[in-house]
Simulated scan of single mutants.
Amino acid sequence: MSFSGPNSPVVVWAACFLWLMSLTAIGWSLLLFFCFGDLLLLTGTDLINAFLLLSAIVMLPTNVSMLCSIANGRRIDHRAKVVCCPLWLSIFWIILINTIAAIVCFLIILSCRELIIQQLYRSMKNYRSIPKYKRFCDNIQWSLKCCGLNSYKDWFNQDWYDKIRDYEWDPLESTSKAIKKRFVSDSVPLSCCKSGSCVSNYLSELGTYSINTSGCGPLLYRIVMLSLNAYFVLFLLTAVLEIIILKLIMKDNCPGVRRANILGVRHLKPYKANSIVSSETCQFNVESDDHMELSEHETAINK
């Protein structure tokens, strides 16, 4: 008996792989939602993570049902109940969910750069007024060892700072009635520091040796693109494997194919035996006819 029993080896290995993947996907998705919810929301990957969790929740009982049939040595029946619907319908929903998720993921990949720039700029602009944007910027700058969108100087143009260096007169902005003042800041948030404490104010005079000077935009874009591509491949792989499983189990449970296989095995030898008997019978009859014709010819000569 083969390892897979009455089921195709492709179905067995695919069911095992998808079962392990569903367990991993559920744990990974819940971890991201609870620990990095704001990060997912502001980078546009929250919807993709939701699709991954939904697909894994539907896929887990479906593959457990198939593995139970395999473990008990039974052929997987596409009409077997999984929770509240047939097995083939559960597999169909998995294929549909992963196909839609792959399409959405592809669309987000196309607009990923613009989305990252927009969210980082919005977070820097609302750094002082909205806590979730402040947490987002600080977490990104601490974890990626970066500062600002393209460089640390991007913070100089944002109204985030705690201290104002001074006022500078700008002759170009003066009018005949009044002279306008322009705020100038050369400080960055503490999350730009290389260590726990550093010089983050008056950077023009004191230097930038203690802060990270590279921008967060390119680094965050590469990380998000890498995760989106991994999600895209995962969704496509899941959909393809489920299509193969559905096709094979529907083929194995087809009544016409099973009946043809049973008849071919059980009636193969009797058919050959009957063929041999029929051939011998024909041959015997031919010899009898020749003998009768010869006897009639000899009788005619004797007369």
Rank of each mutant, 00 (worst) to 15 (best):
G196Q: 12
Q118N: 12
W19T: 00
I262H: 12
F156L: 07
R259K: 14
S90E: 08
Q118H: 13
I130P: 03
L60G: 01
D186W: 07
I140M: 09
I117F: 09
S8N: 10
L203M: 09
T45Y: 00
L52G: 03
L42G: 02
W93N: 10
N253G: 08
C254K: 11
C16T: 04
S90R: 09
D154W: 03
G37D: 09
I95C: 10
W160D: 07
N302E: 14
S29W: 02
L172E: 06
Q141D: 08
V199N: 14
F34A: 13
L206E: 02
R258P: 04
G207F: 11
I211Y: 01
P171D: 13
P171Y: 10
K269F: 11
P218N: 12
G217D: 08
D252C: 02
I91K: 03
L144G: 01
L246A: 10
R75N: 05
L172Q: 13
N139R: 13
K181M: 09
I76N: 02
K145G: 11
I211L: 06
S195W: 12
K145S: 15
L52F: 04
I140N: 01
N201Y: 07
H78S: 10
R135W: 06
T208F: 05
S288K: 15
W169F: 14
D290F: 12
L144Q: 03
N274E: 15
K134H: 11
K194P: 08
T62V: 08
F232W: 12
L237H: 04
L53S: 00
S90W: 03
C193E: 04
D186T: 09
S210Y: 03
M66I: 11
S129A: 10
N302W: 14
L294Y: 10
R79W: 12
T175N: 05
I140A: 06
R182S: 11
C198I: 00
Y121W: 10
K272L: 15
N212P: 02
V58S: 01
H291F: 13
